Amino acid sequence: TFELKGKVGKVVKIAEDHYLVEVEGDKWIAYSDEKLSLGDRVMVVDVDGLKLKVKRIP
Score class of each variant (00 low, 15 high):
residue 51 K to H: 06
residue 27 K to D: 03
residue 37 S to C: 04
residue 56 R to K: 07
residue 23 V to I: 13
residue 17 D to N: 08
residue 51 K to I: 09
residue 47 V to P: 04
residue 29 I to C: 03
residue 28 W to I: 06
residue 50 L to G: 10
residue 15 A to K: 09
residue 18 H to E: 15
residue 9 G to C: 03
residue 25 G to P: 13
residue 29 I to A: 15
residue 17 D to A: 03
residue 30 A to Y: 00
residue 36 L to G: 01
residue 3 E to F: 11
residue 44 V to C: 04
residue 51 K to N: 07
residue 42 V to Q: 00
residue 9 G to M: 02
residue 19 Y to D: 05
residue 26 D to H: 14
residue 15 A to H: 10
residue 45 V to D: 13
residue 12 V to F: 13
residue 4 L to H: 01
residue 38 L to M: 08
residue 52 L to F: 03
residue 13 K to T: 10
residue 34 E to R: 07
residue 43 M to G: 04
residue 13 K to L: 05
residue 33 D to R: 11
residue 39 G to M: 08
residue 56 R to F: 14
residue 14 I to D: 07
residue 35 K to F: 07
residue 33 D to Y: 08
residue 54 V to L: 03
residue 45 V to C: 04
residue 6 G to L: 01
residue 22 E to C: 04
residue 40 D to R: 04
residue 49 G to E: 11
residue 34 E to P: 07
residue 52 L to W: 01
residue 11 V to P: 02
residue 36 L to P: 07
residue 37 S to E: 13
residue 27 K to G: 07
residue 4 L to K: 04
residue 56 R to H: 09
residue 54 V to F: 01
residue 12 V to G: 12
residue 15 A to R: 09
residue 34 E to D: 08
residue 4 L to Y: 01
residue 40 D to I: 08
residue 53 K to R: 12
residue 27 K to C: 03
residue 9 G to A: 09
residue 3 E to W: 10
residue 15 A to Q: 05
residue 4 L to W: 02
residue 43 M to A: 05
residue 3 E to Q: 05
residue 31 Y to I: 06
residue 3 E to I: 01
residue 57 I to K: 06
residue 51 K to T: 08
residue 49 G to S: 06
residue 20 L to N: 13
residue 13 K to S: 10
residue 37 S to P: 15
residue 40 D to C: 03
residue 8 V to W: 05
residue 13 K to R: 05
residue 2 F to D: 13
residue 28 W to L: 04
residue 49 G to K: 15
residue 22 E to H: 05
residue 48 D to Y: 10
residue 32 S to A: 11
residue 31 Y to E: 13
residue 58 P to L: 07
residue 47 V to Y: 07
residue 4 L to G: 03
residue 2 F to Q: 13
residue 27 K to S: 12
residue 22 E to L: 03
residue 7 K to L: 02
residue 54 V to C: 03
residue 15 A to M: 08
residue 19 Y to S: 10
residue 24 E to P: 02
residue 37 S to A: 11
residue 21 V to K: 00
residue 53 K to V: 05
residue 12 V to W: 07
residue 19 Y to L: 10
residue 10 K to P: 13
residue 10 K to A: 15
residue 21 V to G: 01
residue 33 D to C: 05
residue 45 V to P: 00
residue 41 R to W: 10
residue 37 S to D: 07
residue 26 D to G: 07
residue 40 D to N: 07
residue 50 L to C: 04
residue 41 R to Q: 09
residue 31 Y to L: 11
residue 36 L to C: 06
residue 58 P to I: 08
residue 3 E to G: 01
residue 7 K to N: 02
residue 18 H to W: 05
residue 27 K to N: 03
residue 18 H to M: 11
residue 18 H to P: 02
residue 27 K to L: 03
residue 57 I to G: 14
residue 54 V to T: 04
residue 23 V to T: 02
residue 48 D to W: 06
residue 45 V to L: 11
residue 52 L to H: 02
residue 38 L to I: 11
residue 29 I to G: 08
residue 46 D to E: 10
residue 48 D to H: 06
residue 8 V to T: 13
residue 45 V to Y: 03
residue 50 L to F: 13
residue 38 L to R: 09
residue 46 D to F: 03
residue 42 V to Y: 01
residue 5 K to T: 11
residue 51 K to Y: 04
residue 44 V to R: 00
residue 22 E to A: 08
residue 46 D to P: 01
residue 10 K to G: 12
residue 31 Y to D: 14
residue 31 Y to G: 08
residue 51 K to E: 06
residue 1 T to N: 15
residue 17 D to T: 05
residue 6 G to I: 00
residue 24 E to F: 05
residue 55 K to H: 09
residue 53 K to T: 14
residue 50 L to W: 13
residue 17 D to I: 15
residue 22 E to N: 04
residue 26 D to Y: 14
residue 9 G to V: 03
residue 13 K to P: 02
residue 20 L to R: 11
residue 29 I to D: 08
residue 28 W to D: 01
residue 24 E to S: 07
residue 33 D to W: 11
residue 52 L to M: 05
residue 5 K to C: 06
residue 8 V to E: 13
residue 40 D to Q: 09
residue 45 V to S: 11
residue 25 G to R: 15
residue 47 V to I: 07
residue 35 K to Q: 15
residue 16 E to T: 10
residue 30 A to V: 05
residue 39 G to Y: 08
residue 7 K to I: 01
residue 47 V to H: 04
residue 42 V to W: 00
residue 51 K to Q: 08
residue 47 V to Q: 12
residue 54 V to W: 02
residue 54 V to D: 00
residue 48 D to M: 06
residue 34 E to K: 05
residue 37 S to Q: 14
residue 4 L to T: 03
residue 21 V to C: 04
residue 37 S to Y: 09
residue 5 K to L: 10
residue 48 D to S: 06
residue 2 F to W: 08
residue 21 V to R: 00
residue 8 V to S: 13
residue 50 L to V: 09
residue 31 Y to M: 12
residue 4 L to N: 01
residue 36 L to Q: 13
residue 31 Y to V: 09
residue 12 V to K: 07
residue 45 V to A: 06
residue 52 L to N: 02
residue 29 I to Q: 08
residue 1 T to I: 15
residue 58 P to V: 13
residue 6 G to V: 00
residue 8 V to P: 10
residue 44 V to W: 01
residue 7 K to C: 02
residue 57 I to D: 15
residue 27 K to Q: 08
residue 43 M to I: 15
residue 8 V to D: 07
residue 55 K to A: 14
residue 41 R to C: 07
residue 47 V to E: 04
residue 42 V to E: 00
residue 46 D to I: 05
residue 2 F to N: 15
residue 5 K to Y: 15
residue 42 V to C: 06
residue 43 M to K: 03
residue 3 E to T: 01
residue 22 E to V: 06
residue 23 V to F: 02
residue 17 D to S: 10
residue 26 D to W: 08
residue 49 G to P: 11
residue 53 K to Q: 11
residue 38 L to V: 09
residue 21 V to Q: 00
residue 50 L to M: 13
residue 37 S to M: 05
residue 1 T to F: 08
residue 15 A to T: 10
residue 20 L to G: 13
residue 4 L to F: 01
residue 1 T to H: 15
residue 11 V to E: 00
residue 19 Y to E: 06
residue 27 K to Y: 06
residue 18 H to D: 11
residue 16 E to M: 12
residue 7 K to R: 06
residue 48 D to N: 14
residue 5 K to G: 06
residue 55 K to T: 03
residue 33 D to V: 10
residue 4 L to V: 03
residue 16 E to D: 04
residue 57 I to T: 15
residue 50 L to S: 12
residue 18 H to Y: 07
residue 45 V to M: 14
residue 53 K to W: 06
residue 26 D to F: 13
residue 31 Y to C: 07
residue 34 E to V: 08
residue 52 L to I: 04
residue 43 M to N: 09
residue 57 I to M: 15
residue 19 Y to W: 09
residue 44 V to S: 01
residue 34 E to T: 04
residue 52 L to P: 03
residue 12 V to N: 13
residue 14 I to M: 12
residue 19 Y to F: 11
residue 7 K to W: 01
residue 55 K to D: 14
residue 38 L to W: 10
residue 45 V to T: 14
residue 21 V to P: 00
residue 25 G to E: 10
residue 11 V to S: 02
residue 30 A to M: 07
residue 3 E to V: 02
residue 29 I to L: 05
residue 49 G to Q: 06
residue 2 F to R: 05
residue 25 G to K: 08
residue 10 K to Q: 06
residue 5 K to S: 07
residue 46 D to L: 03
residue 54 V to E: 00
residue 51 K to S: 08
residue 18 H to C: 03
residue 19 Y to Q: 10
residue 16 E to N: 10
residue 42 V to A: 12
residue 32 S to H: 12
residue 17 D to Q: 14
residue 42 V to P: 02
residue 25 G to I: 11
residue 30 A to H: 00
residue 43 M to H: 05
residue 51 K to L: 15
residue 29 I to P: 08
residue 10 K to Y: 12
residue 11 V to M: 11
residue 48 D to Q: 05
residue 39 G to K: 07
residue 35 K to P: 08
residue 32 S to I: 14
residue 24 E to L: 08
residue 28 W to M: 05
residue 33 D to E: 12
residue 58 P to S: 06
residue 57 I to N: 11
residue 2 F to H: 14
residue 24 E to H: 04
residue 25 G to F: 11
residue 14 I to T: 11
residue 34 E to H: 06
residue 10 K to S: 12
residue 19 Y to M: 14
residue 57 I to P: 12
residue 53 K to E: 13
residue 23 V to C: 04
residue 43 M to S: 07
residue 55 K to F: 08
residue 35 K to E: 11
residue 23 V to L: 05
residue 45 V to E: 14
residue 4 L to S: 02
residue 36 L to A: 06
residue 39 G to N: 10
residue 20 L to H: 15
residue 5 K to N: 15
residue 10 K to T: 12
residue 9 G to P: 00
residue 32 S to E: 07
residue 49 G to A: 12
residue 16 E to P: 10
residue 52 L to E: 00
residue 45 V to Q: 13
residue 55 K to W: 06
residue 36 L to M: 15
residue 1 T to V: 06
residue 23 V to E: 01
residue 4 L to C: 02
residue 29 I to E: 12
residue 8 V to C: 04
residue 15 A to Y: 14
residue 54 V to H: 00
residue 16 E to A: 06
residue 37 S to W: 10
residue 33 D to I: 06
residue 44 V to I: 04
residue 16 E to I: 07
residue 1 T to W: 14
residue 22 E to Q: 14
residue 20 L to C: 05
residue 11 V to N: 03
residue 9 G to L: 02
residue 36 L to Y: 14
residue 35 K to A: 10
residue 24 E to Y: 02
residue 32 S to W: 08
residue 38 L to Q: 12
residue 5 K to V: 11
residue 14 I to G: 09
residue 48 D to A: 09
